[in-house]
């Protein structure tokens, strides 16, 4: 995860729209991918991304740099995703049909199925660290939990995924 230019951040904090646009360009892909992982719904992930930046703009004066800017944005995106999913009255369902049509079908299907078996808390920690490359501290900032909790969730996610993959291997000789 990269850090924005401090001058851009400073300008954005004082309400400078072109500076904020720079931040949008720099982070929207990651935010969209994160939202897509959490929602498994393309149009919804787009809405979540837009909502995340709207909220970020509104509250950017309150961002004091205590955590990395990316972690702060991820935390907002996570809240927006949860709100969007709660509104739909369901947790993220896995779009299996998509997995089967991609070139990496077997790997994706296997991993998605395995991820589906992991608890949402553990899956979030796994996504932030393994997929988005956040450190334990950054993931802790995003999730609002202690570093030790992230470490432990990550370990449990790995354990569950290893078992799931091993189980698949046994089941498909």
């Amino acid at each position: 995860m990269h850090d924005p230019d401090p001058r851009t951040l400073q300008r954005a904090r004082s309400g400078d729209l072109p500076a904020f646009e720079e931040l949008v360009r720099g982070y929207q892909a990651e935010i969209f991918r994160f939202a897509l992982h959490l929602t498994h719904d393309h149009p919804l992930a787009e809405d979540v991304t837009q909502e995340t930046f709207l909220r970020a703009f509104r509250f950017i004066r309150g961002y004091r740099g205590a955590q990395r800017f990316g972690s702060w944005l991820f935390a907002i995106a996570r809240n927006c995703s949860m709100d969007a999913l709660r509104k739909r009255g369901r947790i993220a369902a896995l779009p299996e049909q998509d997995a089967r049509t991609t070139p990496d079908a077997s790997v994706r299907a296997e991993l998605d199925a395995a991820l589906a078996a992991v608890s949402p808390d553990h899956r979030e920690a796994f996504l932030l660290i393994e997929v988005f490359g956040l450190s334990y501290q950054e993931a802790a900032d995003v999730l609002g939990v202690a570093v030790g909790t992230v470490k432990s969730r990550m370990f449990r996610a790995r354990q569950a995924l290893c078992q799931a993959i091993a189980g698949d291997q046994e089941a498909t000789p």
Partner: peptide, 16 residues
């Protein structure tokens, strides 16, 4: 990943 910059900035500008 879609480019959502215009859509985001339009809403930010109007709602900022």
């Amino acid at each position: 990943v879609p480019d959502l910059t215009d859509r985001i900035m339009a809403s930010v500008a109007r709602g900022s």
